[in-house]
Amino acid sequence: MAAPVLEVDGLVKHFPQGRARTVKAVNGVSFHIDRGEALALVGESGSGKTTVGRCILRLIEPTSGRVSFLGETITGMPPEQFRHRRPRIQLVFQEPYDSLNPRMRIGRIIDEPLMLARRILPLARPARVLELLDMVGLGASVLNLYPHQLSGGEQQRVGIARAIATEPDLVVLDEPTSALDVSVRAEILDLLTDLQERLGFAYLFISHDLTAVRRVCQRVAIMYLGKIVETGPTDEIFASPIHPYSRALLSSVLYPDPAQQRSRFLLVGEIPSPIDLPAGCHLHPRCPWAADECIRAYPPLEARQPGRLAACFRAGHEGETVEPRAYARPGTPG
């Protein structure tokens, strides 16, 4: 069997802050992405999802753990050697405008990776730029425009065209739609799905928004404070989340339907600082199911159903809890 496109094994990234303070951003994350597969890495701010993405792209070096790309370990690979792999792993950024050079015309922005990768003849590049623009739903009319002359959605299309220019095997999408308006967001998500179906890229889609990843990704990994708490096929996680954090994330989604029955599965308080991680399960101070064992040890990420893993001592035992701990309701104004 061919090696997966990406394999992440026991990834840890700590940022020392001086005076014995360390931001424990990623605390042992393992997952893989098969060829042509789209995996979503979902979590709130501070969950470490972006740090994982940056370690994969080697923008930062992990504290420990291993990242393999197409069967080859890339952590610790000398920069000169990694350079040749670079065209095959590309990135789409969150802020479309900020990620485009304001002084370059669109044609040049898309041409630049082609020029650097030197995989096609210089004479063939203009045609390839036009082809890429067409793939992302833009016409030749934008070739000579500057980024500020495009709308946010068009800018993001340029960002995507630039990322797929070198025919990468893996595209890392870091919150590609969260800076966009609703109607534009839907268009970009459709475009990403189309491109993947047609060209067979693998995606690592990093997002805080479960609904955004739903249409694009076949599999989801949910992160909380530097660890994956649940992973499995997207549809199954949406239908029946196992981990209490996944349940809370899903029940916070407000659909545009006043008749939607809302499951009020809410967590207490806020996400703790990754400098002082709670002992035991990181979620226990906020979790309505927390029991003594959750304070003592971190639950292992175990197989629950075929293809589904979850890290929780209490999942499946929630019937034993009489009622979820009451959500602290505010008083009335004094």
Binding site: V182, S183, R185, A186, E187, L189, D190, T211, A212, R214, R215, V253, Y255, P256, D257
Partner: peptide, 13 residues
């Protein structure tokens, strides 16, 4: 339509 697409796994644009 764009907002509902998120729920129903539909094309939204």
């Amino acid at each position: 339509r764009a907002a509902a697409a998120a729920r129903d796994d539909r094309r939204g644009s």
